[in-house]
């Protein structure tokens, strides 16, 4: 069995106005399906990337995986344990230590009033374990100095802060780290440092990453397997090389074509049309059909199931299975 097993994961948010406004303005309850029936597996010691644009639900999946949000429906099992239903306190505690997260904004993810030492050691201190020397050791591991432990976060640059976040994530000796856009707030030259560091640590500690990003180049660099999300649905999943060389879903194709490339001087290609629809009222059938050049009547009525096409899983009526 896979290390991470996500089955039919769904998350619905209630985005209604307060009930008084609803009564007065005669509005129905508004529901936003941020994640809809997503199933995927992540192998141990691999990097699985979720890509998608805003509103694709990629961060919501990450938050459910680490236990920050309960799923509305479906199961998540990590190492055979489902945090949402597990009742044994010891197992829950162990899983909390095994799953960590690195956030997008290195300026918001470190408590400005805490010393770096306490920030890094918190995952261990929270469980009442001994933390002496831990922060110093981890700081050196992520390429900072042990002397930095006595400083406060504001004394560091964005890239250094993200290293501190990595150190904190490593403190409890996790097996799985969810990385939510870990480099999108960083400058390119610093991004490379952080990505390299993450690759090194993965090899060193045998980590598994769920890597969430909107940046296709970063995803291609980091991931072994990639899932493409659109409006809360998994539309395509394949190994990294397969996905980039032979994208099957029209949305993936569009995404790859639209991304600016370093060698696309004076590109005169026709850009994709349309925008992401309102996730509160998604289109019926396949969510991509209003923008899809291949859409048929079937696509406008019926949501396509995931089907196997070679090494790719794809949710599209127009891709022949096999």
């Amino acid at each position: 069995m896979s290390f991470v097993d996500i089955r039919h994961l769904t998350r619905v948010f209630d985005v209604s106005k307060p009930w008084l406004n609803r009564v007065i303005e005669r509005l129905p309850k508004a529901r936003l399906t941020a994640v809809s029936d997503v199933s995927l597996q992540i192998e141990e010691r691999s990097v699985y990337a979720l890509v998608g644009e805003s509103g694709s639900g990629k961060s919501t999946i990450g938050k459910m995986l680490v236990g920050l949000l309960p799923p509305s429906d479906g199961q998540i099992e990590v190492d055979g344990v489902d945090l949402a239903t597990e009742t044994d306190a010891e197992t829950r505690d162990r899983m909390r230590a095994e799953i960590q997260m690195i956030f997008q904004d290195p300026y918001a993810s470190l408590n400005p009033r805490w010393k770096v030492r306490d920030i890094i050691a918190e995952p261990v201190a929270a469980r009442g374990s001994e933390t002496r020397g831990l922060a110093e050791r981890l700081l050196e591991q992520v390429g900072l100095s042990a002397l930095d432990a006595d400083k406060f976060p504001h004394q560091f640059s964005g890239g250094q802060r993200q290293r501190i976040c990595v150190a904190r994530a490593l403190a409890s000796e996790p097996k799985l780290i969810v990385c939510d856009e870990p480099t999108s707030a960083l400058d390119v030259s610093v991004q490379a440092q952080v990505l390299n560091l993450m690759s090194d640590l993965k090899d060193e500690f045998g980590l598994t990453y769920l890597f969430i990003s909107h940046d296709l180049t970063v995803v291609r660099h980091m991931a072994d397997r990639i899932g493409v999300l659109y409006l809360g649905q998994l539309v395509e999943e394949a190994d990294s090389d397969t996905l980039f060389e032979d994208p099957k879903h029209p949305y993936t194709q569009m995404l790859l074509a639209a991304a600016p490339k370093l060698d696309s001087f004076g590109r005169e290609e026709e850009p994709p049309t349309g925008e992401i629809p309102d996730p509160i009222n998604p289109p019926p059938g396949c969510v991509f059909n209003p923008r899809c050049p291949l859409a048929t009547d079937l696509c406008r009525v019926e949501r396509p199931d995931m089907r196997q096409a070679g090494g790719t899983r794809v949710a599209c009526h127009m891709v022949p299975p096999g």
């Binding site: 640059s157 250094q160 400058d187 030259s189 490379a192 390299n196 180049t217 291609r220 660099h221 370093l262």
Partner: peptide
Amino acid sequence: DGLIGSMPAHSAGHDRLRQIPGAM
């Protein structure tokens, strides 16, 4: 040169990225 080299490119594989040490 360093800036362009440190960008993960579409065609590249899983090698280490070239990085500029330090920060501005």
